[in-house]
Design a protein around this nucleic acid. Structure first.
Lengths: 221, 221
DNA sequence: CGATTGCATTTTGTATACAACATGCCAAAC
DNA sequence: GTTTGGCATGTTGTATACAAAATGCAATCG
Protein backbone atom coordinates (compact mmCIF):
# COMPACT_ATOMS: atom_id res chain seq x y z
CA UNK A 1 0.00 0.00 0.00
CA UNK A 2 1.66 3.22 -1.07
CA UNK A 3 -1.32 5.48 -0.62
CA UNK A 4 -1.23 6.93 -4.13
CA UNK A 5 -4.31 5.59 -5.84
CA UNK A 6 -5.00 7.11 -9.20
CA UNK A 7 -7.80 4.79 -10.13
CA UNK A 8 -10.90 6.77 -10.95
CA UNK A 9 -14.02 4.89 -10.07
CA UNK A 10 -17.10 5.62 -12.10
CA UNK A 11 -20.06 3.98 -10.48
CA UNK A 12 -22.28 2.05 -12.82
CA UNK A 13 -25.89 3.13 -12.85
CA UNK A 14 -27.13 0.15 -10.81
CA UNK A 15 -24.35 0.73 -8.29
CA UNK A 16 -25.20 4.40 -8.01
CA UNK A 17 -28.87 3.59 -7.59
CA UNK A 18 -28.06 0.98 -4.94
CA UNK A 19 -25.87 3.46 -3.12
CA UNK A 20 -28.62 6.04 -3.11
CA UNK A 21 -31.21 3.54 -1.92
CA UNK A 22 -28.86 2.31 0.77
CA UNK A 23 -28.60 5.78 2.30
CA UNK A 24 -32.34 6.30 1.92
CA UNK A 25 -32.89 3.09 3.87
CA UNK A 26 -30.25 3.78 6.51
CA UNK A 27 -31.50 7.31 7.04
CA UNK A 28 -35.00 5.98 7.44
CA UNK A 29 -36.39 7.79 4.41
CA UNK A 30 -37.53 4.38 3.25
CA UNK A 31 -38.97 2.84 6.39
CA UNK A 32 -38.64 -0.83 7.33
CA UNK A 33 -41.42 -2.82 5.75
CA UNK A 34 -42.06 -0.20 3.07
CA UNK A 35 -42.88 -1.55 -0.36
CA UNK A 36 -40.83 -0.09 -3.18
CA UNK A 37 -42.78 0.72 -6.30
CA UNK A 38 -40.51 0.28 -9.29
CA UNK A 39 -42.03 2.84 -11.58
CA UNK A 40 -42.30 5.49 -8.91
CA UNK A 41 -38.79 4.94 -7.59
CA UNK A 42 -37.26 4.85 -11.04
CA UNK A 43 -38.82 8.24 -11.72
CA UNK A 44 -37.65 9.67 -8.41
CA UNK A 45 -34.10 8.47 -9.03
CA UNK A 46 -34.14 9.45 -12.68
CA UNK A 47 -33.24 5.95 -13.77
CA UNK A 48 -35.18 3.43 -15.78
CA UNK A 49 -36.58 0.29 -14.24
CA UNK A 50 -33.88 -2.06 -15.57
CA UNK A 51 -30.88 -0.71 -13.63
CA UNK A 52 -33.15 -0.12 -10.65
CA UNK A 53 -34.04 -3.78 -10.59
CA UNK A 54 -30.37 -4.70 -10.58
CA UNK A 55 -29.90 -2.34 -7.66
CA UNK A 56 -32.72 -4.17 -5.89
CA UNK A 57 -30.93 -7.47 -6.40
CA UNK A 58 -27.72 -6.05 -4.94
CA UNK A 59 -29.47 -4.69 -1.89
CA UNK A 60 -31.37 -7.94 -1.45
CA UNK A 61 -28.02 -9.74 -1.43
CA UNK A 62 -26.86 -7.30 1.28
CA UNK A 63 -29.95 -8.21 3.24
CA UNK A 64 -31.36 -4.70 3.12
CA UNK A 65 -34.35 -5.65 0.96
CA UNK A 66 -36.45 -8.73 0.48
CA UNK A 67 -37.84 -9.51 -2.93
CA UNK A 68 -41.13 -11.35 -3.22
CA UNK A 69 -41.94 -12.86 -6.60
CA UNK A 70 -44.42 -10.73 -8.53
CA UNK A 71 -44.85 -8.52 -5.51
CA UNK A 72 -41.75 -6.44 -5.65
CA UNK A 73 -39.21 -5.43 -3.09
CA UNK A 74 -39.63 -4.21 0.43
CA UNK A 75 -37.30 -2.87 3.09
CA UNK A 76 -36.46 -5.52 5.68
CA UNK A 77 -37.76 -5.02 9.18
CA UNK A 78 -35.29 -6.54 11.60
CA UNK A 79 -36.67 -8.31 14.65
CA UNK A 80 -34.81 -8.23 17.95
CA UNK A 81 -33.93 -11.86 17.33
CA UNK A 82 -32.38 -10.97 13.98
CA UNK A 83 -30.26 -8.39 15.75
CA UNK A 84 -29.26 -10.88 18.44
CA UNK A 85 -28.28 -13.42 15.82
CA UNK A 86 -26.33 -10.93 13.77
CA UNK A 87 -24.41 -9.78 16.82
CA UNK A 88 -23.69 -13.35 17.83
CA UNK A 89 -22.04 -13.93 14.47
CA UNK A 90 -20.32 -10.56 14.41
CA UNK A 91 -18.88 -11.11 17.88
CA UNK A 92 -17.38 -14.37 16.72
CA UNK A 93 -15.91 -12.74 13.62
CA UNK A 94 -14.55 -9.77 15.55
CA UNK A 95 -12.97 -12.24 17.96
CA UNK A 96 -11.28 -14.03 15.09
CA UNK A 97 -10.21 -10.70 13.68
CA UNK A 98 -8.57 -9.77 16.97
CA UNK A 99 -6.79 -13.08 17.26
CA UNK A 100 -5.38 -12.81 13.76
CA UNK A 101 -4.48 -9.16 14.21
CA UNK A 102 -2.53 -9.94 17.39
CA UNK A 103 -0.48 -12.46 15.45
CA UNK A 104 0.31 -10.11 12.57
CA UNK A 105 0.41 -6.62 13.98
CA UNK A 106 3.55 -4.64 13.14
CA UNK A 107 5.10 -1.79 15.08
CA UNK A 108 3.94 0.59 12.41
CA UNK A 109 0.33 -0.58 12.74
CA UNK A 110 0.67 -0.12 16.42
CA UNK A 111 1.73 3.52 16.12
CA UNK A 112 -1.32 4.20 13.96
CA UNK A 113 -3.66 2.51 16.40
CA UNK A 114 -2.23 4.47 19.32
CA UNK A 115 -2.88 7.68 17.39
CA UNK A 116 -6.47 6.65 16.73
CA UNK A 117 -6.91 5.73 20.36
CA UNK A 118 -5.70 9.20 21.42
CA UNK A 119 -8.09 10.76 18.93
CA UNK A 120 -10.92 8.69 20.37
CA UNK A 121 -10.17 9.75 23.93
CA UNK A 122 -10.16 13.36 22.84
CA UNK A 123 -13.50 13.00 21.12
CA UNK A 124 -14.78 11.33 24.26
CA UNK A 125 -13.65 14.13 26.57
CA UNK A 126 -15.10 16.69 24.13
CA UNK A 127 -18.40 14.77 24.19
CA UNK A 128 -18.13 14.76 20.42
CA UNK A 129 -20.29 11.77 19.52
CA UNK A 130 -20.00 11.96 15.71
CA UNK A 131 -16.19 12.05 15.90
CA UNK A 132 -16.27 9.22 18.38
CA UNK A 133 -18.27 7.05 16.02
CA UNK A 134 -15.97 7.90 13.14
CA UNK A 135 -12.80 7.04 15.07
CA UNK A 136 -14.43 3.98 16.59
CA UNK A 137 -15.17 2.66 13.17
CA UNK A 138 -11.66 3.53 11.97
CA UNK A 139 -10.12 1.51 14.81
CA UNK A 140 -12.22 -1.55 14.14
CA UNK A 141 -11.57 -1.28 10.40
CA UNK A 142 -7.87 -0.99 11.13
CA UNK A 143 -7.83 -4.11 13.28
CA UNK A 144 -9.77 -5.92 10.61
CA UNK A 145 -7.25 -4.83 7.98
CA UNK A 146 -4.33 -5.97 10.14
CA UNK A 147 -5.98 -9.38 10.47
CA UNK A 148 -5.30 -9.69 6.75
CA UNK A 149 -8.29 -11.80 5.79
CA UNK A 150 -10.35 -10.07 3.08
CA UNK A 151 -13.13 -12.61 3.28
CA UNK A 152 -13.45 -11.99 6.98
CA UNK A 153 -13.55 -8.25 6.36
CA UNK A 154 -16.19 -8.55 3.70
CA UNK A 155 -18.36 -10.94 5.68
CA UNK A 156 -18.23 -8.64 8.65
CA UNK A 157 -18.99 -5.58 6.57
CA UNK A 158 -22.07 -7.20 5.08
CA UNK A 159 -23.51 -8.00 8.50
CA UNK A 160 -22.67 -4.54 9.71
CA UNK A 161 -24.45 -2.90 6.80
CA UNK A 162 -27.64 -4.74 7.60
CA UNK A 163 -27.63 -3.47 11.14
CA UNK A 164 -27.00 0.07 10.06
CA UNK A 165 -30.54 0.12 8.77
CA UNK A 166 -31.50 0.36 12.42
CA UNK A 167 -29.95 3.80 12.96
CA UNK A 168 -29.25 2.92 16.56
CA UNK A 169 -26.60 5.52 16.99
CA UNK A 170 -27.57 8.72 18.85
CA UNK A 171 -28.57 7.75 22.37
CA UNK A 172 -25.52 6.38 24.12
CA UNK A 173 -25.68 6.69 27.86
CA UNK A 174 -22.71 8.13 29.66
CA UNK A 175 -21.63 5.04 31.62
CA UNK A 176 -21.66 2.85 28.51
CA UNK A 177 -19.65 5.39 26.60
CA UNK A 178 -17.02 5.55 29.34
CA UNK A 179 -16.88 1.77 29.41
CA UNK A 180 -16.52 1.50 25.64
CA UNK A 181 -13.58 3.89 25.62
CA UNK A 182 -11.92 1.94 28.42
CA UNK A 183 -12.43 -1.26 26.43
CA UNK A 184 -10.69 0.27 23.45
CA UNK A 185 -7.74 1.10 25.66
CA UNK A 186 -7.63 -2.55 26.72
CA UNK A 187 -7.74 -3.67 23.10
CA UNK A 188 -4.69 -1.64 22.17
CA UNK A 189 -2.89 -2.93 25.26
CA UNK A 190 -3.67 -6.52 24.35
CA UNK A 191 -2.42 -5.88 20.83
CA UNK A 192 0.76 -4.31 22.21
CA UNK A 193 1.70 -7.56 23.88
CA UNK A 194 0.23 -9.59 21.02
CA UNK A 195 -2.17 -11.40 23.32
CA UNK A 196 -4.65 -12.73 20.80
CA UNK A 197 -6.77 -14.66 23.27
CA UNK A 198 -7.27 -11.64 25.48
CA UNK A 199 -8.02 -9.40 22.50
CA UNK A 200 -10.62 -11.90 21.36
CA UNK A 201 -12.26 -11.83 24.79
CA UNK A 202 -12.32 -8.06 24.92
CA UNK A 203 -13.83 -7.77 21.45
CA UNK A 204 -16.50 -10.35 22.17
CA UNK A 205 -17.41 -8.64 25.42
CA UNK A 206 -17.36 -5.27 23.64
CA UNK A 207 -19.88 -6.49 21.09
CA UNK A 208 -22.07 -8.02 23.76
CA UNK A 209 -22.29 -4.63 25.45
CA UNK A 210 -23.09 -3.01 22.13
CA UNK A 211 -25.86 -5.52 21.53
CA UNK A 212 -27.40 -4.61 24.86
CA UNK A 213 -27.33 -0.92 23.98
CA UNK A 214 -28.90 -1.61 20.60
CA UNK A 215 -31.65 -3.77 22.06
CA UNK A 216 -32.47 -1.07 24.60
CA UNK A 217 -32.71 1.51 21.83
CA UNK A 218 -34.97 -0.80 19.85
CA UNK A 219 -37.24 -1.34 22.80
CA UNK A 220 -37.44 2.39 23.40
CA UNK A 221 -38.72 2.81 19.84
CA UNK B 1 -42.94 -27.11 12.34
CA UNK B 2 -45.56 -29.76 11.67
CA UNK B 3 -43.87 -31.36 8.72
CA UNK B 4 -46.80 -30.94 6.35
CA UNK B 5 -45.70 -28.30 3.94
CA UNK B 6 -48.07 -27.66 1.07
CA UNK B 7 -46.31 -24.62 -0.22
CA UNK B 8 -45.45 -25.08 -3.86
CA UNK B 9 -42.38 -23.17 -4.82
CA UNK B 10 -42.22 -21.92 -8.36
CA UNK B 11 -38.77 -20.58 -9.03
CA UNK B 12 -38.70 -17.24 -10.75
CA UNK B 13 -36.88 -17.18 -14.04
CA UNK B 14 -33.81 -15.38 -12.66
CA UNK B 15 -33.70 -17.84 -9.76
CA UNK B 16 -33.95 -20.80 -12.09
CA UNK B 17 -31.24 -19.37 -14.31
CA UNK B 18 -29.00 -18.72 -11.30
CA UNK B 19 -29.58 -22.27 -10.10
CA UNK B 20 -28.62 -23.68 -13.45
CA UNK B 21 -25.53 -21.51 -13.69
CA UNK B 22 -24.54 -22.46 -10.17
CA UNK B 23 -24.45 -26.14 -11.05
CA UNK B 24 -22.66 -25.41 -14.32
CA UNK B 25 -20.00 -23.57 -12.34
CA UNK B 26 -19.74 -26.17 -9.58
CA UNK B 27 -19.54 -29.01 -12.06
CA UNK B 28 -16.80 -27.18 -13.91
CA UNK B 29 -18.79 -26.79 -17.11
CA UNK B 30 -18.07 -23.11 -16.78
CA UNK B 31 -14.42 -23.01 -15.81
CA UNK B 32 -12.90 -20.55 -13.34
CA UNK B 33 -11.92 -17.38 -15.13
CA UNK B 34 -14.28 -18.03 -18.04
CA UNK B 35 -16.06 -15.00 -19.43
CA UNK B 36 -19.80 -15.35 -19.77
CA UNK B 37 -21.24 -13.95 -22.95
CA UNK B 38 -24.73 -12.74 -22.26
CA UNK B 39 -26.26 -13.32 -25.66
CA UNK B 40 -24.76 -16.76 -26.05
CA UNK B 41 -25.69 -17.90 -22.53
CA UNK B 42 -29.20 -16.51 -22.79
CA UNK B 43 -29.71 -18.59 -25.92
CA UNK B 44 -28.25 -21.71 -24.33
CA UNK B 45 -30.52 -21.33 -21.30
CA UNK B 46 -33.55 -20.34 -23.35
CA UNK B 47 -33.98 -17.13 -21.40
CA UNK B 48 -33.68 -13.54 -22.48
CA UNK B 49 -30.83 -11.33 -21.34
CA UNK B 50 -32.82 -9.43 -18.70
CA UNK B 51 -33.49 -12.31 -16.28
CA UNK B 52 -30.03 -13.68 -17.03
CA UNK B 53 -28.48 -10.43 -15.87
CA UNK B 54 -30.42 -10.64 -12.63
CA UNK B 55 -29.09 -14.15 -12.21
CA UNK B 56 -25.58 -12.77 -12.71
CA UNK B 57 -26.16 -10.26 -9.93
CA UNK B 58 -27.31 -13.00 -7.57
CA UNK B 59 -24.31 -15.18 -8.31
CA UNK B 60 -21.99 -12.22 -7.97
CA UNK B 61 -23.47 -11.62 -4.53
CA UNK B 62 -22.76 -15.27 -3.72
CA UNK B 63 -19.18 -14.70 -4.80
CA UNK B 64 -19.38 -17.17 -7.67
CA UNK B 65 -19.02 -14.50 -10.35
CA UNK B 66 -17.31 -11.18 -10.61
CA UNK B 67 -18.88 -8.46 -12.70
CA UNK B 68 -16.65 -5.92 -14.39
CA UNK B 69 -18.38 -2.79 -15.65
CA UNK B 70 -18.94 -2.92 -19.40
CA UNK B 71 -16.94 -6.10 -19.56
CA UNK B 72 -19.43 -8.61 -18.35
CA UNK B 73 -19.26 -11.39 -15.82
CA UNK B 74 -16.67 -14.04 -15.29
CA UNK B 75 -16.39 -17.09 -13.08
CA UNK B 76 -14.19 -16.42 -10.06
CA UNK B 77 -10.89 -18.22 -9.85
CA UNK B 78 -10.08 -18.85 -6.21
CA UNK B 79 -6.47 -18.55 -5.14
CA UNK B 80 -5.07 -20.78 -2.40
CA UNK B 81 -5.09 -17.69 -0.18
CA UNK B 82 -8.79 -17.19 -0.83
CA UNK B 83 -9.39 -20.77 0.23
CA UNK B 84 -7.28 -20.34 3.34
CA UNK B 85 -9.16 -17.18 4.26
CA UNK B 86 -12.54 -18.74 3.66
CA UNK B 87 -11.67 -21.72 5.82
CA UNK B 88 -10.36 -19.47 8.56
CA UNK B 89 -13.74 -17.75 8.71
CA UNK B 90 -15.70 -20.96 8.31
CA UNK B 91 -13.78 -22.62 11.11
CA UNK B 92 -14.67 -19.75 13.39
CA UNK B 93 -18.33 -19.94 12.40
CA UNK B 94 -18.46 -23.71 12.77
CA UNK B 95 -16.93 -23.30 16.20
CA UNK B 96 -19.62 -20.84 17.17
CA UNK B 97 -22.20 -23.17 15.73
CA UNK B 98 -20.94 -26.01 17.90
CA UNK B 99 -20.87 -23.90 21.01
CA UNK B 100 -24.44 -22.76 20.48
CA UNK B 101 -25.62 -26.24 19.55
CA UNK B 102 -24.16 -27.70 22.73
CA UNK B 103 -26.15 -25.19 24.74
CA UNK B 104 -29.43 -25.90 22.98
CA UNK B 105 -29.37 -29.51 21.90
CA UNK B 106 -32.39 -31.57 22.93
CA UNK B 107 -32.60 -35.29 23.51
CA UNK B 108 -34.58 -35.63 20.33
CA UNK B 109 -31.87 -33.86 18.31
CA UNK B 110 -29.40 -36.18 19.88
CA UNK B 111 -31.23 -39.30 18.76
CA UNK B 112 -31.25 -37.98 15.20
CA UNK B 113 -27.55 -37.19 15.29
CA UNK B 114 -26.70 -40.64 16.61
CA UNK B 115 -28.65 -42.15 13.72
CA UNK B 116 -26.75 -40.01 11.22
CA UNK B 117 -23.46 -40.95 12.87
CA UNK B 118 -24.32 -44.65 12.49
CA UNK B 119 -25.21 -44.05 8.86
CA UNK B 120 -21.88 -42.33 8.34
CA UNK B 121 -19.92 -45.18 9.87
CA UNK B 122 -21.72 -47.63 7.64
CA UNK B 123 -20.93 -45.57 4.55
CA UNK B 124 -17.34 -45.43 5.72
CA UNK B 125 -17.00 -49.17 6.17
CA UNK B 126 -18.69 -49.72 2.77
CA UNK B 127 -16.16 -47.27 1.24
CA UNK B 128 -19.18 -45.46 -0.13
CA UNK B 129 -17.80 -41.97 -0.67
CA UNK B 130 -20.93 -40.31 -2.12
CA UNK B 131 -23.06 -41.47 0.80
CA UNK B 132 -20.36 -40.36 3.20
CA UNK B 133 -20.39 -36.85 1.75
CA UNK B 134 -24.16 -36.73 1.88
CA UNK B 135 -24.36 -37.82 5.52
CA UNK B 136 -21.42 -35.63 6.44
CA UNK B 137 -23.22 -32.63 5.10
CA UNK B 138 -26.45 -33.68 6.83
CA UNK B 139 -24.67 -33.85 10.19
CA UNK B 140 -23.12 -30.43 9.85
CA UNK B 141 -26.40 -28.95 8.64
CA UNK B 142 -28.13 -30.53 11.61
CA UNK B 143 -25.68 -29.04 14.11
CA UNK B 144 -26.10 -25.71 12.40
CA UNK B 145 -29.86 -25.97 12.68
CA UNK B 146 -29.65 -26.88 16.37
CA UNK B 147 -27.52 -23.80 16.96
CA UNK B 148 -30.67 -21.87 16.08
CA UNK B 149 -29.07 -18.85 14.45
CA UNK B 150 -30.39 -18.38 10.90
CA UNK B 151 -27.91 -15.63 10.14
CA UNK B 152 -25.05 -17.90 11.12
CA UNK B 153 -26.47 -20.66 8.94
CA UNK B 154 -26.86 -18.37 5.97
CA UNK B 155 -23.42 -16.81 6.33
CA UNK B 156 -21.85 -20.24 6.52
CA UNK B 157 -23.81 -21.51 3.56
CA UNK B 158 -22.67 -18.61 1.40
CA UNK B 159 -19.01 -19.27 2.14
CA UNK B 160 -19.51 -22.96 1.55
CA UNK B 161 -21.12 -22.39 -1.82
CA UNK B 162 -18.13 -20.41 -2.99
CA UNK B 163 -15.79 -23.23 -2.13
CA UNK B 164 -17.93 -25.79 -3.86
CA UNK B 165 -16.83 -24.21 -7.10
CA UNK B 166 -13.55 -26.00 -6.44
CA UNK B 167 -14.97 -29.51 -6.68
CA UNK B 168 -12.39 -30.75 -4.24
CA UNK B 169 -14.31 -33.86 -3.39
CA UNK B 170 -13.17 -37.15 -4.92
CA UNK B 171 -9.64 -37.88 -3.76
CA UNK B 172 -9.76 -38.41 -0.03
CA UNK B 173 -6.88 -40.49 1.25
CA UNK B 174 -7.68 -43.36 3.54
CA UNK B 175 -6.01 -42.06 6.71
CA UNK B 176 -7.78 -38.71 6.48
CA UNK B 177 -11.09 -40.38 5.96
CA UNK B 178 -10.60 -42.58 9.02
CA UNK B 179 -9.63 -39.53 11.01
CA UNK B 180 -12.63 -37.52 9.85
CA UNK B 181 -15.03 -40.27 10.89
CA UNK B 182 -13.36 -40.47 14.30
CA UNK B 183 -13.72 -36.72 14.67
CA UNK B 184 -17.42 -36.97 13.99
CA UNK B 185 -17.72 -39.51 16.75
CA UNK B 186 -15.99 -37.07 19.09
CA UNK B 187 -18.38 -34.32 18.05
CA UNK B 188 -21.43 -36.33 18.98
CA UNK B 189 -19.80 -37.30 22.26
CA UNK B 190 -19.07 -33.68 23.08
CA UNK B 191 -22.66 -32.78 22.24
CA UNK B 192 -23.91 -35.60 24.44
CA UNK B 193 -22.32 -34.02 27.49
CA UNK B 194 -23.09 -30.53 26.19
CA UNK B 195 -19.45 -29.55 26.23
CA UNK B 196 -19.54 -26.50 23.94
CA UNK B 197 -15.89 -25.60 24.35
CA UNK B 198 -14.72 -29.05 23.37
CA UNK B 199 -17.14 -29.22 20.45
CA UNK B 200 -15.80 -25.91 19.24
CA UNK B 201 -12.25 -27.23 19.38
CA UNK B 202 -13.12 -30.39 17.51
CA UNK B 203 -14.93 -28.50 14.78
CA UNK B 204 -12.12 -26.00 14.34
CA UNK B 205 -9.58 -28.80 14.14
CA UNK B 206 -11.85 -30.71 11.77
CA UNK B 207 -11.97 -27.77 9.40
CA UNK B 208 -8.22 -27.24 9.61
CA UNK B 209 -7.73 -30.82 8.46
CA UNK B 210 -10.22 -30.30 5.65
CA UNK B 211 -8.36 -27.18 4.56
CA UNK B 212 -5.16 -29.18 4.31
CA UNK B 213 -6.86 -31.79 2.18
CA UNK B 214 -8.32 -29.12 -0.10
CA UNK B 215 -4.99 -27.35 -0.49
CA UNK B 216 -3.31 -30.62 -1.40
CA UNK B 217 -5.95 -31.29 -4.02
CA UNK B 218 -5.52 -27.79 -5.40
CA UNK B 219 -1.76 -28.21 -5.66
CA UNK B 220 -2.19 -31.52 -7.41
CA UNK B 221 -4.25 -29.78 -10.07
C1' DC C 1 -75.55 -10.13 4.84
C1' DG C 2 -71.41 -12.87 3.74
C1' DA C 3 -68.81 -15.30 0.49
C1' DT C 4 -67.29 -15.91 -4.05
C1' DT C 5 -66.35 -14.98 -8.71
C1' DG C 6 -65.23 -12.10 -12.61
C1' DC C 7 -63.41 -7.83 -14.23
C1' DA C 8 -60.60 -3.52 -14.23
C1' DT C 9 -56.52 -1.64 -12.75
C1' DT C 10 -52.10 -1.62 -11.09
C1' DT C 11 -47.66 -3.66 -10.71
C1' DT C 12 -44.12 -6.74 -11.74
C1' DG C 13 -41.73 -9.81 -15.27
C1' DT C 14 -39.59 -10.53 -19.84
C1' DA C 15 -38.03 -9.55 -24.38
C1' DT C 16 -35.93 -6.59 -27.41
C1' DA C 17 -34.41 -2.40 -29.78
C1' DC C 18 -31.13 0.96 -29.41
C1' DA C 19 -27.21 3.43 -27.12
C1' DA C 20 -22.76 3.39 -24.95
C1' DC C 21 -18.66 1.30 -24.36
C1' DA C 22 -14.62 -1.84 -25.05
C1' DT C 23 -11.52 -4.13 -28.14
C1' DG C 24 -8.72 -5.29 -31.91
C1' DC C 25 -6.93 -3.91 -36.23
C1' DC C 26 -4.88 -1.07 -39.48
C1' DA C 27 -2.97 3.02 -41.17
C1' DA C 28 -0.53 7.20 -40.54
C1' DA C 29 2.74 10.00 -38.16
C1' DC C 30 6.84 10.70 -35.75
C1' DG D 1 9.86 0.65 -35.31
C1' DT D 2 7.02 2.40 -32.09
C1' DT D 3 3.22 5.08 -30.95
C1' DT D 4 -1.08 7.22 -31.76
C1' DG D 5 -5.51 7.89 -33.75
C1' DG D 6 -9.48 6.32 -36.08
C1' DC D 7 -12.56 2.90 -37.46
C1' DA D 8 -15.11 -1.54 -37.49
C1' DT D 9 -17.06 -4.97 -34.74
C1' DG D 10 -18.72 -7.19 -30.94
C1' DT D 11 -20.51 -6.89 -26.22
C1' DT D 12 -22.61 -4.76 -22.38
C1' DG D 13 -25.91 -1.06 -20.59
C1' DT D 14 -30.45 1.19 -20.62
C1' DA D 15 -35.03 2.23 -21.89
C1' DT D 16 -39.31 0.71 -23.11
C1' DA D 17 -43.07 -1.99 -25.07
C1' DC D 18 -45.63 -5.82 -24.11
C1' DA D 19 -46.99 -10.02 -21.30
C1' DA D 20 -48.20 -12.06 -16.97
C1' DA D 21 -49.44 -11.82 -12.45
C1' DA D 22 -51.54 -9.72 -8.38
C1' DT D 23 -54.83 -6.68 -6.26
C1' DG D 24 -59.00 -4.29 -5.26
C1' DC D 25 -63.72 -3.70 -6.25
C1' DA D 26 -68.13 -4.61 -7.48
C1' DA D 27 -71.75 -7.66 -8.89
C1' DT D 28 -73.92 -11.95 -8.15
C1' DC D 29 -75.35 -15.91 -5.73
C1' DG D 30 -76.41 -18.50 -1.75
Amino acid sequence: MDGSNFQITRLTLPEAAAERLRTLIIEGELAPGARLNERELSERLGVSRTPLREAFRMLAADGLLVQLPNRGAQVVALSTDDVRHAFEVMASLEGLSGELAAARVTDHDFVELRALQTEMEQAHSRHDLPSYYRVNRAIHDRINAIAGNPILTQTFRTLNTRLHALRFRSNLVRTKWDQAVAEHRDMIDALAVRDGVRLREILVRHLKAKLQAVLETMEAA
